[in-house]
Write a protein that binds this DNA or RNA. Structure first.
Lengths: 135, 135
DNA sequence: CATAAATACTACCTTGATGTATTATTTTTT
DNA sequence: AAAAAATAATACATCAAGGTAGTATTTATG
């Protein structure tokens, strides 16, 4: 898989929140809608809160809302926040130094692919996804 | 990481064998040249043998040689053999059914990237890599 | 034929990602 | 003030990928 399970969860949560019109999302509600294990989902929600994508409201009637405008949250940012390192900068062969040939002979062809991917992820915001899904 | 460690090992082994001119490669020799743990490397060599990329010669003075011409071995084949499933066909979100919006709202942009990647991997053979590295 | 040097097989160990359980904290409602 | 309903924090459990160890098998060489 190209993205870790956790990263795909994070993206799915935020995309769902972006497209489902609700003033507030409780963890319970998100659990019922998305197919992510309850406890793990809650932990991820806390993570996303710490990363500043959403804000948590504690206490009775609490839940989660977007902390920023959806058109300012790009897929690349979500991916990098959750993966914990700059995934889109890495060599496909997992090397930190890509100078060596033939060890990293894939480097040339990979660079093109990676830049293409990076461009797409950096230009696609949650708002864009919302727009294209409602159309 | 976009490819598993094991897959990058497999690719590195075969690229090394393609570029280093030797009539026969012993596991010991490959271990000294590549930076892959000894035992795991040997297991991978057996795997690559079973997948038909290389042939093993047992007994004293044994080792490994290519089982097929290098211009018939494409990166896509190596990746799919080692990953054990058709990685390049999968959805970036790890879903088997990508019909649902907004759950898989990334599908559109991903398709383009994936096809691009698939094309590159399907068109690049070990021979190509050898040619480009000696030039 | 015995030994050395190579690969093959099988089982176990380690580690990180994912998932679960328990308890603590916060806030609203009565 | 007490209870209810929400998130937060911490620790533990599970599983698969990656790595290690020991033994078996094969073949060349003296």
């Amino acid at each position: 898989m190209f993205l870790s399970k956790t990263t795909t969860y994070a993206i799915r949560i935020l995309i769902f929140m972006a497209t489902d019109e609700q003033p507030l999302f409780s963890a319970q509600y998100l659990f019922e809608k998305l197919n992510i294990s309850n406890r793990y989902l809650r932990r991820l929600l806390t993570d996303l809160t710490k990363h500043g994508f959403i804000t948590s409201l504690r206490g009775r009637n609490g839940g989660f809302v977007f902390a920023r405008k959806m058109d300012s949250i790009f897929l690349s940012e979500i991916i990098e926040a959750v993966e914990g390192f700059n995934l889109l900068e890495t060599c496909i062969m997992g090397r930190t130094d890509c100078k060596l040939s033939p060890v990293c002979a894939m480097h040339g062809s990979w660079l093109e692919i990676r830049d293409n991917m990076k461009k797409t992820f950096s230009l696609t915001s949650l708002q864009d996804i919302k727009n294209s899904s409602t159309t």
